[in-house]
Design a protein around this nucleic acid. Structure first.
Length: 348
DNA sequence: AAAGCGTGGTA
DNA sequence: TTACCAAGCTT
């Protein structure tokens, strides 16, 4: 085992193995003077928060096709952006995305701030994303610390302190490795390493560019790192969902409150989600129980929904009707799309 | 500062 | 089926 891991050998590995991504400028193009578009880097980094590259790709292409610049996005309707984000999850990101675009357009002349501090003052941009944009888009020597970097650093230095306690320690280590030049390529290189070689389970240490200096590999504990505090069990909650159509075939939907779970998203009227939900039907009609329950797991609880449907022209107490022509199940968050999936046959 | 906040893939 | 996991941020 050698004493140090150098950014140079990781960059050399990245030059050979960098993966293609729609928002990424290849090391070769960057060397040729092509610089990344900060708007596209920002958009991709927000989408990538707690989300896999595979899931993000199609959404990134969709967003950049509809809204090619931050000024275009700033002018978009809220409902259009939320519908376009549907299915990607963590919907506060979409609300903050639009807020951020509008601040950049109106207060920064459509140009993203060129410092980490300036970036982090914007909605939805935290410690990770500010460092990612600063380094990748502007080539500033800022250090990213995401789940990949945490894992790589914990293994490289055999840090046995469990997360999240270990975080400050891992930041300090990560900063020591960040080079003054090519910081953006370096940031992407560490994350690629974590995604493809230094993986959570069964890391491919044999082909790792940092295998020699890796203390975790030397002591044989690399696959067990980083250690983490145990997680809480998810409780089961229940609820009711109501799918109503009028005689014209329009669907009754509502926009959920801006805060909280699925905030700002379309959904079917329904009960609260709890141990003992209040049925809370949106209108007094003869409801038909669909029979098939909808099961869905959120970050912190399991949900079981009992789905009812009806056709009626009695005016509902809440919600609004969307014509069959305008209704697209893909505009709904996944749990609501599942409700539609089990209910739609009842209207055929 | 601990908890809330989605989803789909994988073992 | 269940549990874990992924380029985190906000309050």
């Amino acid at each position: 085992m050698r004493e140090t891991a150098s950014s140079d050998e990781l960059l050399a590995w990245y030059d050979r193995h960098a993966r293609e991504m729609p928002w990424r400028v290849s090391p070769a193009d960057r060397a040729a003077g092509i610089t990344p578009d900060p708007y596209r880097i920002w958009l991709s980094e927000v989408m990538l928060q707690q989300t896999t590259v595979a899931a993000v790709k199609e959404y990134f292409v969709k967003f950049t096709t509809i809204w090619p610049t931050v000024n275009d996005l700033a002018r978009a309707q809220d409902a259009d952006v939320m519908a376009a984000w549907a299915g990607l999850g963590y919907y506060a990101r979409a609300r903050n995305l639009l807020k951020c675009a509008r601040v950049v357009a109106s207060e920064h002349n459509g140009i993203f701030p060129k410092t980490r501090v300036g970036l982090q003052a914007l909605p939805g941009i935290g410690p990770y994303t500010s460092a990612a944009i600063a380094s990748i888009a502007y080539d500033l020597p800022e250090t990213v610390l995401d789940g990949n970097v945490e894992r790589v650093m914990a293994r490289l230095h055999a840090v046995e302190t469990p997360l999240p306690t270990a975080k400050p320690e891992l930041i300090a280590l990560a900063e020591q490795h960040t080079p003054q030049t090519r910081a953006g390529d370096y940031a992407q290189a560490v994350m690629d390493l974590g995604a493809t070689i230094c993986t959570p389970k069964s890391p491919a240490c044999g082909i790792c560019p940092w295998r020699d200096p890796c203390a975790g590999r030397a002591s044989g504990i690399a696959p067990e790192l980083p250690r983490k505090l145990p997680k809480k069990a998810k409780p089961i909650r229940r609820g009711f969902a109501y799918v109503l159509r009028n005689s014209g075939g329009d669907w009754l939907l509502e926009t959920r409150p801006d805060k909280g779970l699925l905030g700002g998203m379309l959904g079917w009227p329904g009960s609260d989600w709890s141990d003992a939900p209040d049925p809370a039907a949106p209108v007094q009609v003869e409801w038909n129980e669909v029979g098939a329950e909808v099961r869905h797991t959120f970050t912190h609880f399991h949900l079981i929904l009992d789905v009812f449907c009806a056709t009626s022209d009695v005016p509902p107490a809440r919600g609004f009707f969307v014509s069959a022509r305008d209704f697209r199940p893909s505009d709904l968050p996944t749990v609501m799309r599942k409700v539609h999936d089990v209910a739609k046959h009842r209207f055929e």
